[in-house]
Nucleic acid binder design. Structure first.
Lengths: 371, 371
DNA sequence: GGGGATTTGTTTAGTGGTTGAATTATTTGA
DNA sequence: TCAAATAATTCAACCACTAAACAAATCCCC
């Protein structure tokens, strides 16, 4: 049972319907009129007018020329998301680069900075200071464009709980308070900052990019292997935020010893190192692990990212063989296997998107803030 | 993003708050007063009074003597769920028995009928006719008690999609319209009837029984092995309803051939037949498969049901060894491994609960009906 | 080229549901 | 016996939505 725990009042109705209208303009027809939004949502035109007026006044929607139309009637006024409203700052720190980007409400990447440099010799403070500089530059550029950066999110290749990076083996980090380090940069001090696992955020990035199927598994091949599971458009993090550890899924119970202490973990067969030595082996191991996921969760789409993107063509068939053999329902509907569309930018884009998601899901809060 | 797709109006506010009050009375303090409900929910006492009056008039709540209290003040009136309101009819058909039960809003099993008989020689029509008779008797007895049976749900050991039993290997069924067969019984003709997989419903039964952790995996050992995954109190069915096929999860990639065509499926090592021959093998295989689930989904609790219940003590340690070895976060928090509390009744109870869930989640619909 | 048809968007009265403050009800304790 | 305390109800105010009428702007056809 979905446990209802919060009361609902009139203000909640408005908040919900504001989000509904915003969502309809964003994901529905192209530059819809108020009347079209009313028809699509089931609200009356009067209500939609009032809601739209609020959203326009609050700087989330703009009135634009509508798409051409034939037939009689008063011409419509088109509606679209602003490109001069709230923006999300997406950050990423990885083994060999730092990156920052600013994405506006329309999903356009407005600024993008990447700094290639091996982060491993540096200590966390140093890497985070450099990233902070990049972030400050990106924010400055965005605000010069009239954007309001409402928050930042950082993607790291490691385990994150309670806002702390518990362990990021490939960076050599342990218990790093990345949020505090970033907020120590004066230009970012007032900004809400969050951290999350790279695979989780990359999954959200792909979700936004494809706009298609809202249920899929994103598998990110790096030194280790991480996964982000998106169910019905929501990232599933697990009860304690420890989901997605596909790298340590058992593939061959008595196989190669893994650094985690177990044997036969996927990582030993399809991690970056193994991938460089034996692609068919990696494909078979991935296929076995993915078949398990599909049998358990009925996930119709799997997206491969990170180090798998350049070798996707070579992996595809080997994975497909195992999926067809081992997925019980493979005969009823084949599993779709795709390469990530955003490539290396997926995590950073997903990070920026988490910031904007807050605005999209609760535009009323943004309107209050502006007032 | 949770895509908002439906408009909200004042009536939805009332519907939500009615559900909120009902939920608070059901799952909150013992026999709370209106004032206590107001404090627990955040609604005002005026609003709670109005909502409670509706629920009492509609026959979902009753006023009862409150729990003893000390101190000054006007004495409270306690609130509790009725035991003479809506009731759910839970049905189960399995290899060697038919069963029906009636559960009231408080969760009490009011009537229970079990008929032991091997269903395999019989054809589906015959089994369903017999079950229909049992169901009709149960409904009659319930209504003689003043209960209103609002629907029925049937648990079957097979794959169900779109309300049809596609295949139930152990019963020898294929493409059976069980709903139609049950509704052909005159005493059930007016009743909404649903069918679902046995493991799914058993998982929901356990959810209701424990009331504890709302995220767990229920594994049902029968001839085959099924699983019901409950995430945050919701059964996760998968995009097409094909989730939970843990029996065909690969445990030993080059292992025993399975009737599904693949090799090394869990079912070959921990299905009922294997279980009778080699308990340690079953435990190890289960441990491997369950470690995969925990690594992927961060599920903190696993409940073993069906044929695993009688041998749980013998399985426990063998499974635990693999979990401790293979779950990456086992050191941070151990995985809780439990035996099903409802035993063989879990599926039937869960089925009855799905009927009542409708009333609990949308009491407003029930009130409209009564009016 | 003028008038009706058509569609968009706004205005206005009405309804439903919640809030908050005042009121009534009923007990304990000094 | 009366003040304090707690429970529950009443009532005016408010807010957001609906429905229907109205105003605005265009097309189309004779």
């Amino acid at each position: 049972m979905t446990a209802p725990t919060t009361p609902v009042r009139q203000a909640s109705v408005r908040a919900h319907n504001l989000a509904l209208v915003l969502h309809t303009v964003a994901n529905g027809a192209d530059r819809p009129s108020r009347a079209a939004v009313a028809a699509a949502t089931g609200l009356t035109r009067a209500t939609v007018s009032a809601l739209v007026d609020d959203l326009v006044a609050g700087g989330l929607l703009v009135e634009v020329a509508p798409p051409p139309r034939t037939g009689a009637g008063r011409p419509a006024v088109g509606l679209a998301l602003t490109s001069t409203g709230p923006a999300g700052l997406g950050l990423e720190i990885n083994v060999d680069y730092l990156a920052a980007c600013v994405v506006d409400l329309t999903g356009t990447v407005r600024h993008r900075y990447v700094e290639h440099a091996d982060q491993r010799p540096a200590d966390p403070e140093r890497s985070l200071a450099a990233l902070g500089g990049l972030a400050a530059r990106a924010r400055g550029a965005a605000e010069a464009d009239g954007l309001t950066v409402t928050g930042a999110a950082l993607a790291v290749p490691g385990l994150v709980t309670d806002g702390l990076v518990r362990v990021a083996p490939n960076l050599g980090w342990q218990d790093v308070d990345a949020v505090a380090a970033l907020r120590a940069v004066p230009e970012l001090a007032d900004l809400p900052v969050t951290v999350d696992n790279e695979a989780n955020l990359a999954a959200l990035g792909e979700l936004g990019a494809t706009g298609g199927n809202p249920t899929f598994l994103y598998v990110s091949g790096e030194v280790g292997i991480g996964a982000g599971l998106v169910l019905s458009g929501e990232l599933y993090r697990g009860v304690r935020g420890w989901s997605g550890e596909i790298g340590h899924v058992t593939v061959y119970p008595d196989g190669r010893p893994c650094r985690c202490g177990a044997r036969g973990c996927l990582e030993q067969y399809a991690g970056q190192e193994a991938l460089e030595h034996d692609v068919p082996l990696a494909a078979a191991a991935l296929g076995i692990a993915l078949s398990v996921v599909v049998n358990l969760l009925d996930v119709p789409v799997i997206v491969l990212g990170g180090a798998y993107v350049p070798v996707f063509a070579a992996l595809r068939e080997g994975i497909g063989v195992e999926l067809r053999r081992r997925v019980l329902t493979a005969g009823l509907a084949p599993v779709e296997l795709r390469s990530a569309e955003l490539g290396a930018d997926a995590a950073m884009r997903g990070a920026a998107d988490t910031v904007l998601r807050v605005v999209r899901e609760d535009p009323a809060a943004w309107l209050r803030r502006g007032a």
